[in-house]
């Protein structure tokens, strides 16, 4: 009798060992999600995953800001009215008061419609899936923040050299 066809889940004795490190340096709503989504995908594949939050990326893990990231289409010519591909939103509208709030609300709704969680719940999902999350020492010093200010799933505040050590052998993404 022939052997059944069985998927390889990459957890055999000679498999695995893949590692991913993602540097999140931006705090805009639309720049927070790519890192979170890729980290979640990697964790779901059994990959050791590290997230390093630096500069504006700190807003993703700062308890005071993480639920309130914003999206602005200033400088983003790819922003178009819903379903109207090929038409750019006039850049002059971007800085108009209330426009960022409106654009943020629209984007959050689109994300929620796909059953993708908001940032704080997303961090919980990553934490439960085994993500290792690190805050950047220099950013913390610049902003006067300590571990008490950060999402509780953050593992520590580390410096650049520490991150380089932790990410040894990892595939690296800078966002």
């Amino acid at each position: 009798m022939s052997m059944p066809i069985v998927p390889s889940f990459g957890d055999g004795p000679d498999e695995g060992g893949r590692k991913l490190a993602i540097i999140c340096s931006k705090g805009n709503l639309d720049m927070a999600y790519p890192g979170l989504i890729l980290a979640n995908a990697a964790l779901g594949e059994g990959i050791e995953t590290h997230l390093f939050f630096t500069f504006w990326g700190f807003d993703i893990i700062n308890k005071a800001t993480m639920a309130d990231l914003k999206f602005s289409f200033v400088g983003n010519t790819a922003m178009h009215p819903p379903g109207r591909f090929g038409i750019s939103m006039p850049q002059i509208l971007g800085p108009v008061p209330g426009m960022t709030a409106m654009a943020t609300k629209m984007m959050k709704k689109q994300i929620a419609d796909l059953e993708v969680p908001e940032v704080p719940e997303f961090l919980e999902l990553l934490s439960a899936s085994g993500a290792q999350m690190w805050g950047c020492q220099m950013s913390a010093d610049m902003m006067g923040l300590t571990m008490d200010d950060l999402y509780e799933g953050v593992d520590g505040i580390i410096n650049a050299s520490d991150f380089i050590e932790k990410s040894e052998g990892a595939q690296l993404l800078f966002i």
Binding site: F9, G10, D11, G16, G44, E45, G46, L125, A128, S129
Partner: peptide, 13 residues
């Protein structure tokens, strides 16, 4: 909970 899913179906739940 997600942690439980990883425990029941390890690595790629």
């Amino acid at each position: 909970p997600v942690k439980q899913l990883f425990a029941l179906f390890p690595q790629k739940p």
